Simulated assay, not measured.
Amino acid sequence: MDKVNNYLENLLPESEEWATALEKQAISGKVPIMERQSIHFLKQLAQIRQPKHLLEIGTAIGYSALQLHNACPQAQIITIERDKDRYHESIRNIKDQSKEDQIQVIFGDALEVLEDPGIKAKTFDFIFIDAAKGQYKRFFELIDPLISKDGIIVTDNVLFKGYVVNEEGINDRHVKLVKKIRNYNEWLSNHSGYITTFIPIGDGIAISLKK
């Protein structure tokens, strides 16, 4: 699989200069961002759907929000980040690209922000979950009322380095997390309101289409 991944990686177009800079920033700061294959897939999915209102849970340094805007320049994006340092980094990176009018970064815990009346009054046609993996099910429950008919919810890291299949070699502190992700995947696959497809790209992506 490593050879296949390397082959596919080499087929990807080169990242734009700003994206390469953020990728290096993420490596330097040990900030997890989507792998290049995954972000390329996410962007293409967004380009196909052409969402007008997009919500992201988990901003980090603003990499994926900027990539999604690059794919859908007409979209208004709201993204939520609870880590103060990453929040400020994302604000700087978004301003550096002059995208602050299209991308709104909200500081706070998504579990609380999603309960805010101002957010609950909004409707989104594309939602991307890439935050605390142990809270995926709760995130999904909170955003379910916000997604438009035929809208898409994308969840990253649903394979968690393959540990959902094989826990051999896993760190003890991750055992409960793996079980939560596995339970989330099973719950999602049986959700009566969505059709979900799991894609083994990057760290695993789930695409849930609202019925």
Rank of each mutant, 00 (worst) to 15 (best):
F128E: 04
D2E: 13
K84H: 14
E14W: 03
K179L: 12
I91D: 01
Y184A: 02
I39A: 00
I78P: 01
K176S: 14
F139Q: 03
E168T: 14
E17T: 04
E16D: 12
D125E: 13
V113I: 15
L42M: 06
V158F: 03
A46D: 01
D2L: 05
I48D: 01
T20P: 00
I77Y: 04
P13R: 00
R49H: 15
I94H: 05
H40N: 02
G169W: 14
N6W: 10
Y63C: 06
E186N: 13
F124H: 05
K95E: 11
N10E: 14
G169K: 14
T197I: 14
I91E: 08
K30Q: 15
A60Q: 06
I147V: 11
K137T: 09
K95N: 07
V175F: 01
H174V: 15
T155S: 12
G29C: 07
I147M: 01
I77F: 02
E100H: 05
I201G: 00
I153G: 08
G151R: 14
D116W: 15
L8C: 10
A26D: 10
Q76Y: 15
K179D: 15
G169V: 09
G202Q: 13
S38T: 12
M34C: 10
P32A: 12
K24V: 06
R49F: 09
D156V: 04
